[in-house]
Design a protein around this nucleic acid. Structure first.
Lengths: 220, 220
DNA sequence: AATCATATCACTAAAATTAGTGATTTTTCA
DNA sequence: TGAAAAATCACTAATTTTAGTGATATGATT
């Protein structure tokens, strides 16, 4: 047969390493070429071992997985990374994917899906374990939560007029333009602006604009 | 047994209606209580039929599915909606979910998953067909595409210094604060600001801030 | 009838931004 | 090494924004 695909493991739990070694041994396409119990000099070791895939825990002593990924993402590397983690936290997944990881497994699901993950990632795909797939799908729905909610209600109550003013500010209208548009004096506009700044505890009109964007007061 | 779950179908293709009726008949938990070939007076009909779930095509004559959903989302309705569509377009899914739909099936996958979708949605879950699930997962990865890309490259080339300045502006630093932070004169800061406004064809610092946000120059 | 919230406007003075022009020094790169 | 790009700074003048205080009018609420 052709060369086996080389896997390097990094996790501070020896037992998990042993477990993964055992599972990976059952598939003849892969072989474990080494492992580390911490993140120090990990990249060096992986490169030295000529591994194709690094399966790495995020929580490691000395240097954690995020740090390793950050370093990796700053230059080209000859291997791909699958991240292991105890946490099924969406933000963390997003973070590690952004930093270049190709797969994410929670530790509960390692047993079921490590081989599948290795295959997918080796084929250039990305892989998320079942739990994370479900989470991702769920977040996709929940991100679009404006159901039946016509108006977005900001945390702090703004009056109708203030809403109009802050929107125009965010739309890059100057004070004068606003006053002309609304047929009021610039003094009034300024007063509203001041009240907005105070109410929202912001320092500048740029802050107001950002507030408007964050709270979906304007289309961005 | 207890009452069956009532399903109402809306699709301008009679054959698809017949197909769905046949498939749904195989499951004794559900029954089809009516159907429409267009969107006119659809809501009225569904309510009259006391349906629990509406399975609705997006492309319908007279009044399309989006319109129906918009109307539905403006008040409470006693039934849930699963959307059928020929298109596997993510934006469309997002749109219909935002408008209150609980499930999304492409027409290719109706046969395989309509029952599954009905069960899930009836249990208060959301349901996406296989194809869409894959699309959603893929988009999740691709949205975080900055892999190995340390610097974000805006459409228009900004110099290092200009990038620093525009970021600080977007972070609500005043000209003076910037000058103090960077140990340069306010004149210089103003010059950079002017150059940025001209380069990016923007009218105000709020425009600069929005540009910085849009182009991921700052964390927002 | 009195009160409160909202919206309106005024005045002043300081600070900042905008607009335009011009110039010097550093860095980069062919 | 020489030209181009980038970064730096200055000066002027008009305009705008910020900051603070105070005042009037209107409508809703109690």
């Amino acid at each position: 047969m052709t060369e086996k695909i080389k896997v390097y493991l990094a996790d501070d739990h020896q037992m998990l390493i042993e477990g993964m070694k055992a599972v990976i041994k059952t598939n003849e396409d892969f072989e474990v070429v080494g492992y580390s119990l911490n993140g120090m000099r990990l990249i060096e070791e992986v490169v030295k071992a000529k591994a194709d895939i690094l399966v790495m825990d995020i929580n490691m002593p000395e240097k954690d997985g995020i740090e390793v990924l950050k370093e990796l993402s700053s230059y080209e590397t000859p291997f791909k990374v699958i991240v292991l983690s105890s946490y099924d936290d969406l933000k963390l997944v997003k973070e590690v994917i952004k930093l270049g990881a190709r797969g994410y497994l929670t530790k509960q699901s390692v047993g079921d899906s490590i081989i599948e993950a290795l295959i997918e990632v080796h084929n250039g795909e990305e892989y998320f374990c079942k739990i994370m797939q479900e989470k991702i799908l769920a977040s996709f729905s929940h991100n679009t939560q404006n159901i039946n909610q016509v108006k977005i209600v900001p945390q702090i109550y703004l009056t109708e007029r203030e809403l109009v003013i802050i929107k125009l500010i965010a739309l890059e209208y100057s004070g004068k333009m606003i006053s002309e548009k609304l047929f009021i004096s610039t003094n009034t506009v300024e007063t509203h602006r001041k009240n907005l700044l105070k109410k929202l505890n912001l320092k500048s009109s740029i802050g107001l604009a950002k507030y408007a964007i964050k709270n979906n007061l304007i289309h961005f």
